[in-house]
Amino acid sequence: MRRLTLDQAVLIAPALAIMLVFFAYPIGLTVYFSLLDYSLMRRTKAFVGLANYLHVLQSDLFVRTATNTLVWVVISTVLPLLIALVAALLTYFRFRGYRAFTALFSLPIVFIPSSTAILWALMYSDPFGLVNHLCEAFGLGRRIWLADPATALPAVSIANAWYGTPFAYLMLLAGLESLPLEPIEASEVDGASSLQKVRYILLPMLWPIFTVVFLLRLIDTVRSFALIWIMTQGGPGTASLTLPVATFKASFLQYDYGLGSAWGIINVIVVMGISFAIVWRRREVE
């Protein structure tokens, strides 16, 4: 059957209808608004072509935001993936109590992002936060982590890394468990040590899955908004301003929907770039 039958079309219709009305249509609006000088404050709604895009791309703020986004993405993808990989490999070898370990180690997933923000804002706060208590105990002195431009972004990124670790862990673990057993059994016959098994058999076999998990995590962090917004609102100054936060700020703090939409579309372009990498990678994996 090369053609879609009527019955099949009917089955697809509900999902498609929701997506068209509440997704495709708003996307159209965003593109349209991004071409307007649409500010609730200046009370304008005139067509200005690509002026909003130029304004964003030429501003110092864009450079700042792009750099911040890069830092945010690197910390909150690499850190959880490395930790998750170690945890998944350990679990794969089924040490005593590995079930309990899985349950405890995955516990952060039961928190919603707002709770995560609260948990970590509490950890970083002064004088009640544990991070400062620990720093003091080790003689490092206290800091105002979320109000210090040098530490605000890394601090929020670490919170995000914490929140993302269990997801990466569960996916990598599932990936490991789906690998064929023959090569490992064969290596056991050859008397390979655990480390050798990991280095020469498991890691190479896991690599395709690892890259897909990595790319998915990448997309999720590039477009994530809640944690930064709740913890620092992009501040202090612009020290933790990332693409989505800048987008939200333009629309809902400066009431400039034209500029906000242009930021939004730039977001889309970045994410789509990474998405193509995923699709391409997935083809390769298959």
């Binding site: 965003t30 590039v222 477009r223 939200f248 579309i265 977001n267 889309v268």
Partner: peptide, 15 residues
């Protein structure tokens, strides 16, 4: 699925 949510924040409100 891979779309950044933030880009639709105001339009979804209008719709």
């Amino acid at each position: 699925r891979l779309f950044p949510w933030i880009a639709l924040a105001f339009p979804i409100f209008l719709v």
